[in-house]
Design a protein around this nucleic acid. Structure first.
Length: 356
DNA sequence: TACTAAATAT
DNA sequence: CATATTTAGT
């Protein structure tokens, strides 16, 4: 008897632990519960020949078991995640009498956990509904409000400012108009990359050794701008890389050797070779000479060779995937960059950075 | 309409 | 994390 009792306690202890992982181990939890229950019954009715058949006993009978009240019938209705915690499969209200249904219930619930949260419910989809009916109610009414998880964040007020200069809202054309609607799609308000912000971005980039080795997360951390998210940085980085890579095919040569002493190669985007300075620390170099640690606008002094393409990035040819992190160590960019094919017969490429 | 920037999906 | 696609603002 005593042993049994201890056993039960031990099991309960286990169950407590498992409970934390209900989602992951639903069956485990269930089995332990049943085991406990079975033991209890057996004990209580030592004499009583209760035949608990297949462990199906209901717990409630005696149910001194504190347990299971966490059953929440649950239905996935609410989109809120997590609520499902307890999800005990058997909401056995009927227990004994019908053993058949049970098993299937379990399975069903298990699946739910895995995915497809709420097949049944029509609306209320947690996130984006692919499309479908979307737009139609242009605001008519959306009974269900879609709270925005992240929402609240400061975003709207550009302020943020992070220390130092308050990065005036600048740029962003048109004043702030944030429709507070909130009713529907809730697309995050666009973040405007003010010059200040971009400057920080560049700075971070520089510290990290170039747009191709820097990762969004690192960048964000270096920028130290509060409300900024990885996704925003990521997106900006993407754009940056894009711009920087193809400064502009057209211009060069075109015939006007004369006047334009400088061409706008790409404004801020094209800060090709710098980084080197910093790179010193870590090496690399990759970018030929052109020191210019410069800040943002780097007048790329001629340097025909490097030019847009050659220098900064080009590694594209092969290795399309995975790889990239390590790099930096040395790699002076195997070949490439060097030569300066005629391409730029061009004369000078001085950049001027227009505004941003 | 063509393009760009930023958000979001893969 | 890298890219692709979508949604807006010009």
């Amino acid at each position: 008897m005593q042993r049994c009792h201890d056993y039960i306690e031990a099991l309960e202890e286990e169950r407590r632990k498992i409970q934390v992982f209900q989602r992951e181990l639903p069956l485990c939890l269930e089995l332990v519960s049943q085991a406990i229950e079975s033991c209890r019954q057996q004990m209580s009715g030592t004499t009583q020949e209760y035949f608990h058949g297949q462990s199906e006993c209901s717990e409630q009978t005696s149910s001194d078991g504190p347990v299971l009240e966490e059953f929440i019938p649950i239905k996935k209705t609410s989109d809120d995640e997590d609520e499902q915690q307890s999800h005990q499969p058997n909401d056995n209200k009927d227990k004994n009498n019908d053993k058949s249904g049970k098993k299937s219930d379990w399975l069903r619930s298990v699946q739910l956990w895995n995915q497809t949260p709420d097949p049944p419910v029509k609306e209320d989809t947690p996130k984006k509904i692919p499309s479908m009916e979307v737009k139609k109610n242009g605001g008519a009414f959306h009974p269900f409000k879609r709270d925005k998880a992240v929402g609240t964040n400061p975003t709207s007020a550009p302020s943020a400012a992070t220390s130092s200069t308050a990065e005036t809202a600048t740029g962003c054309s048109s004043g702030s108009r944030k429709e507070e609607k909130e009713g529907q799609s809730q697309r995050k308000a666009r973040r405007c990359w003010s010059p200040e912000l971009h400057r920080r971005f560049l700075h971070a980039l520089q510290q990290l050794g170039g747009s191709h080795v820097a990762t969004p997360k690192q960048i964000r951390e270096l920028m130290k701008v509060d409300g900024l998210t990885n996704d925003e940085v990521k997106s900006h980085l993407q754009k940056y890389r894009l711009h920087t890579r193809r400064p502009n095919p057209a211009i060069q040569h075109n015939g006007n050797p004369q006047a334009p002493q400088f061409v706008v190669v790409g404004g801020i985007w094209v800060p090709p070779p710098e980084y080197t300075a910093v790179a010193a620390t870590t090496s690399s170099g990759e970018a030929t000479g052109v020191t210019t640690a410069n800040g943002i606008y780097a007048p790329v002094a001629s340097v025909p060779p490097s030019h847009p393409q050659g220098s900064t990035q080009r590694q594209q040819p092969m290795k399309p995937k995975k790889s990239q992190s390590e790099e930096r160590g040395s790699h002076s960019e195997g070949g490439v960059q060097s030569n300066s094919p005629a391409t730029s017969s061009s004369t000078h490429t001085t950049t001027t950075s227009p505004v941003f």
